[in-house]
């Protein structure tokens, strides 16, 4: 058995002016989870250590916390795999205020979730006596998204939320996906339009933190990418994100290569004068340094092959399902 130092974030606003780290030594028995390690520390060394937990079997989402800087679910994680130079550093989830030790204020998370109208909105005129029919494939289509346990790990590590709390965030966007792709829901277009607005699906940088931290198959980044594809297909194009994707398609589809002079004005809109003016300073800076992209855009060699592929664009629209797609995220 190995002796390990648990370096745990402590903060009790009743007593402490500032947060601190407290070290606890523990002999790790083989197979012990992080949550059981914390329970041992709380039982044997310091009963004031505070964290949330409930089911202990990775379905309730209570015990999400950060270890060595990254969010995870304590109950399903073996402690031995977390040791770094003899230490396991445990912190509360990020992007939320700390209430005490490892407990954070989840209200912003719930508030964000409610914004996407996370409930089924079927066609009210269709009220069958029996169940609504759904093919096994239609169930599969939302199966991954429905595995979300609302633990907040993705919310904690989302890079965009770190700079802007107005961003809907990965869990809410994954929840929107769950209804957008539910064959029984009648508000698909409204939902797509809503999350195509500012702070929605196009504001994600696809940094991949959410899917990497997600302890289930919900994998928010994959869900976000699916929603973007659905938005493009639904023709919800009146926003910079969609115009950016269209511009990308247009320039790469023509020449095989991105035209960097074309994409920015295409994205903000060629008639959007204030935004075009906003692009000027950086353009000027780059021009002055000779760093501007070549004025004459060159195609790649054999660009006709690329044009041919793009010409069949709609034929190749691929709708991934669980059976045809590897997990887009951390090993689980």
């Amino acid at each position: 058995m190995a002796q390990v130092t648990f370096r745990i974030f402590r903060f009790d606003p009743e007593k402490d002016k500032e947060s601190r780290y407290q070290d606890y030594e523990l002999e790790l028995e083989p197979g012990i989870t992080l949550l059981n390690s914390l329970n041992r520390i709380k039982s044997e060394q310091d009963s004031s250590l505070t964290y949330r937990m409930s089911c202990g079997s990775a379905i309730c989402g209570s015990c999400a916390m950060r270890v060595n800087g990254h969010a995870l679910l304590a109950c399903k994680t073996q402690a031995s795999g977390l040791v770094k130079d003899g230490v396991i550093q445990v912190d509360p989830l990020g992007n939320m205020e700390v209430l005490k030790d490892l407990v954070v204020d989840l209200e912003p998370f719930w508030k964000s979730l409610k914004q996407v109208d996370p409930w089924l909105q079927p066609d009210v005129s269709d009220n069958p006596e029996n169940e609504r029919l759904q093919t096994p494939e239609q169930f599969q289509r939302i199966d991954d998204a429905t595995t979300c346990i609302l633990c907040g790990a993705c919310y904690s590590d989302c890079n965009v939320l770190g700079v802007d709390q107005e961003f809907l965030g990965p869990a809410s966007l994954a929840k929107a996906n769950r209804f957008i792709f539910d064959s029984r829901d009648a508000k698909t277009r409204d939902r797509i339009e809503f999350i195509s607005e500012m702070n929605g699906v196009w504001d994600c940088t696809h940094c991949g933190e959410c899917s990497t931290r997600c302890p289930t198959e919900a994998k928010p980044l994959a869900r976000i990418m699916e929603v973007r594809e659905a938005a493009m297909q639904a023709g919800v194009h009146n926003n910079n994100g969609a115009r950016h994707a269209l511009g990308f398609r247009e320039t790469v589809g023509r020449s095989g290569r991105l035209n960097e002079n074309y994409l920015p004005p295409r994205s903000v809109g060629f008639l959007n004068i204030p935004a075009l003016i906003g692009l000027a300073p950086v353009g000027l800076r780059m021009f002055m340094r000779g760093k501007n992209p070549p004025i004459i855009h060159h195609s790649i060699d054999k660009a006709d092959e690329v044009r041919k592929i793009f010409s069949k664009f709609e034929d190749y629209r691929h709708h991934p399902t669980r059976s045809s797609r590897p997990d887009d995220g951390a090993s689980d």
């Binding site: 493009m232 994707a245 990308f248 398609r249 290569r257 790649i300 660009a303 793009f310 664009f313």
Partner: peptide, 15 residues
């Protein structure tokens, strides 16, 4: 050709 930068796949993953 351009890798698509994760943007073409926003529009059409298979392309």
């Amino acid at each position: 050709a351009c890798c698509g930068a994760g943007v073409i796949s926003e529009d059409n993953e298979m392309v």
